[in-house]
């Protein structure tokens, strides 16, 4: 399967390990990722917060670039980028007036861009490969590791845009972890918000919302939280100490990307999967399951 790949700004910087693990895992599963040449930032929270046209315009340029690659599908492992790209794609398809305006502002034709379909990498893996296909690749099962599958907001919401899984009780990530031999826990916060783009600008919000997520995972007996978004991972990992200080509880919960765990199960080393780059170390957990 050939598909255009949009890493987004985070995967080229803080979330480098998410990029590397996604590429290796997809390669193993027969999903050929072709990075969109010269892609630009999706605009993230900033663009849609302050300027609707800018937000759609920035994503439209990326969609047009995919069309130039002669590909019809694009995937991104970032839930934020996914939300912006797919929102733009849906708006272009539904609103001809807006499309004409954006074409004028950006100075490009969007006829081809309208045909491009966008999906989060979790969706691509689950739909193109599925649980059985993943199981076939597992060499080192995760030995019943108790994991909190954390979908967060934007992989499944808003439902009219995402068109994937259940918006509040998502199961795709749990199924994927089961296929790897892990034991996903039942918990209350799998689709709650971590505080998203407020990491720097209003840290209290992230400490508050992220704290609720960590607490829910702890209460459910999770040994780690599994993320599918660089913002969720960064917020829960980098703010964990601040959350611990505020709540007076030591969580010590590693926040791991689902692709890192897939890679481990496919017998890549923890270092190849960049597990050494997490602030909250997963080493003890991995050793307890004979994976390190």
């Amino acid at each position: 399967m050939d598909i255009a790949y949009f890493p987004g700004c985070s995967l080229h910087a803080m979330a480098h390990e998410y990029d590397t693990s996604t590429r290796l895992v997809c390669q193993r599963l027969g999903i050929n990722l072709y990075e969109v040449p010269d892609w630009n930032c999706c605009g993230a929270t900033a663009a849609h917060s302050l300027d609707h046209h800018l937000s759609v315009g920035l994503s439209s340029r990326n969609l047009a670039l995919v069309k130039d690659m002669n590909l019809k599908q694009m995937t991104t492992p970032c839930a934020g980028c996914f939300n912006r790209l797919k929102t733009a794609s849906v708006e272009l398809k539904q609103n001809d007036d807006l499309t004409a305006e954006i074409e004028k502002l950006a100075g490009i034709s969007l006829t081809g861009a309208k045909e491009v379909e966008v999906a989060h990498t979790l969706q691509v893996i689950m739909e193109a490969v599925g649980m059985e296909g993943i199981k076939e690749q597992v060499i080192k099962p995760l030995n019943g590791m108790k994991l909190a599958a954390y979908s967060g907001c934007l992989i499944t919401r808003p439902r009219a845009i995402a068109q994937f899984d259940d918006p509040e009780q998502p199961v795709a990530l749990d199924h994927l972890l089961q296929a790897l031999g892990a034991q996903p826990v039942h918990w209350s916060h799998k689709a709650e918000c971590c505080g998203g783009g407020f990491a720097a600008s209003d840290t209290d919000i992230v400490v508050d919302l992220g704290g609720q997520v960590l607490e829910a995972a702890r209460q459910a007996g999770a040994e780690a939280i599994v993320a599918a978004c660089p913002m969720c991972q960064t917020n829960l990992d980098t703010r964990q100490r601040a959350i611990e200080d505020e709540r007076g509880i030591k969580y010590n919960l590693p926040i791991v990307y689902f692709t890192q765990l897939m890679g481990l199960a496919f017998s890549y080393s923890p270092r190849q999967m960049g597990l050494n780059r997490l602030l909250t170390s997963p080493t003890t957990l991995l050793r307890s399951r004979g994976l390190s």
Partner: peptide, 27 residues
């Protein structure tokens, strides 16, 4: 919440200048 608005503005500025966001310099 001037900081929230400021952060959005700085982020858009970064995109205008380079097309992408460099996280560490932005922070």
């Amino acid at each position: 919440r001037i900081n929230v608005e400021l952060f959005h503005d700085l982020m858009l500025n970064s995109i205008r200048k380079t097309g992408r966001v460099a996280e560490a310099p932005l922070m």
